[in-house]
Amino acid sequence: MIDLDDIDRQILRALVQDATLSAGALGRRLNLSQPATWRRIKRLHESGAIKSRRLVLDREKLGFGVTVFLGVKLATKGRVSLEDFERVVSAIPEVQTVEHILGIYDYRLKIVARDIPDFERVLRRRIMALPGVGNVEANVMLSEERRPGPL
């Protein structure tokens, strides 16, 4: 774990809101010089506190109006390895995240689709056709109220 002071936390909060901020603009916001801000951002990257900067797309405006969280229970763990399942399911373009979880299901997948019939096609032709897939449970996301930020 990295030691963060108040300025580091302010930098992280600002970058979570707008990752395109330059070190100069961020420094002006926090009353720091551009070089001092740049050094702090570089240290946060090198320490792993900042993993990457991502572009957040509006899925709905791009034609993907349905997000489904799919719980997947593997039929028999010995028949297909977890690594093989993760590799194969990660190659499906509609699958946004693959989370190995503890509980009723072995995996939780986040799937985006154009609409419910499109999700059904992905489920039937791609997910259920994978070796080792047993039970599945789908939960359709109705709305997303909170975006993740720094702790």
Rank of each mutant, 00 (worst) to 15 (best):
N135M: 09
L62Y: 07
T20W: 02
P93V: 07
S33Q: 01
T97C: 02
G24N: 05
R79H: 11
R53G: 08
G65I: 04
N31Y: 09
R28L: 06
V133M: 06
V56K: 14
A91Y: 04
G149M: 08
E144P: 01
A23E: 00
G63E: 11
R126S: 15
V80T: 10
I2C: 06
I101T: 15
R29K: 08
S52D: 14
F119A: 08
M1Y: 03
I116M: 13
A113D: 05
A25W: 00
K61L: 14
R40D: 00
T20C: 02
E144M: 09
L15Q: 01
L62K: 11
L70Q: 05
L4S: 04
H100Q: 11
Y107T: 06
V68L: 04
A36T: 07
G71L: 07
S47A: 07
V89A: 01
V140E: 01
A36L: 09
D5T: 00
G103K: 14
E120Q: 10
G132V: 06
G27V: 01
R43T: 11
I127Q: 07
A25F: 01
A36I: 01
K42G: 04
A91W: 02
D8T: 00
I104L: 15
L55F: 14
A14W: 03
A14V: 03
S47N: 02
D5K: 00
R147T: 12
N139R: 13
E137W: 13
I41G: 01
L32A: 07
S143F: 04
L151H: 12
L74M: 14
M141T: 11
V88M: 06
A49V: 14
I101N: 04
D118I: 06
R125T: 15
K61S: 12
V136D: 04
E144I: 05
P150N: 12
L123G: 09
L62F: 12
L26H: 00
Q34M: 11
M1R: 05
A113L: 12
P35G: 10
A138S: 15
V72S: 03
L123I: 09
F69C: 01
D106E: 08
R29L: 02
E120P: 01
S81G: 13
P131E: 06
E94W: 02
M1G: 12
T67D: 07
V89D: 00
D6A: 14
E83Y: 06
V95N: 03
T97Q: 10
I92G: 02
V66R: 11
L26N: 00
V98D: 02
K73C: 03
I50Q: 02
W38H: 08
L151R: 13
G63L: 13
T67L: 06
T20K: 11
A91T: 08
E60N: 13
Y105K: 08
L44F: 10
L82V: 11
H100L: 13
V95L: 05
V140K: 07
S81H: 07
R114E: 14
L109S: 02
V133L: 03
R146E: 08
M141P: 00
W38Q: 04
E144K: 14
V66D: 04
M128Y: 09
G27S: 04
V16P: 01
I7A: 00
